[in-house]
């Protein structure tokens, strides 16, 4: 290989290495608009699950203090987005849990949950 070709190869390798993404390639875990262990004076009308990267909201479930699932009027779409607003039914005083599963672009399923109490 000539000196010029070696130089071109080295420059190409250096430029590819230096063109480093600002962040790790994994999608960040999603967060919810309701904090875990929150005590709310009013029942929330919805919960928003969001992430810095585009994700899919594959599953979301609302459970009451008795462990029984409460139906949600929400059908997860296949669209990838950075935020999903899930409307909640009218909730009375008590403790609830919302758990969700998101899909990242790299094919990872990530589950998380929040528990909150309505004090009204």
């Amino acid at each position: 290989m000539s000196a010029r070709k070696t130089l071109y190869a080295a420059a190409l390798a250096a430029s590819l290495l230096l063109a480093t993404p600002a962040a790790f390639a994994h999608s960040d875990p999603a967060t919810a608009s309701i904090a875990n262990d929150a005590e709310l004076a009013e029942a929330p009308a919805s919960i928003t699950v969001s992430s810095a990267d585009k994700i899919g909201l594959a599953k979301v479930k609302l459970t009451g203090a008795d462990g029984k699932e409460i139906a949600l009027d929400y059908t997860p779409s296949k669209a990838m987005a950075t935020a999903f607003e899930v409307p909640l039914p009218t909730l009375g005083a008590g403790t609830y849990m919302i758990d969700w599963t998101t899909m990242s672009k790299d094919g990872h399923a990530m589950s998380d949950m929040v528990q909150f109490t309505i004090t009204e």
Partner: peptide, 26 residues
Amino acid sequence: MLSAEIGGSPGAAFDSASLDWAWSAL
């Protein structure tokens, strides 16, 4: 396994909604 993970239980491995999501990734 990915379908079960999305569905939240081993029984969801062949659940159509979960499997649909798993298929979109794999």
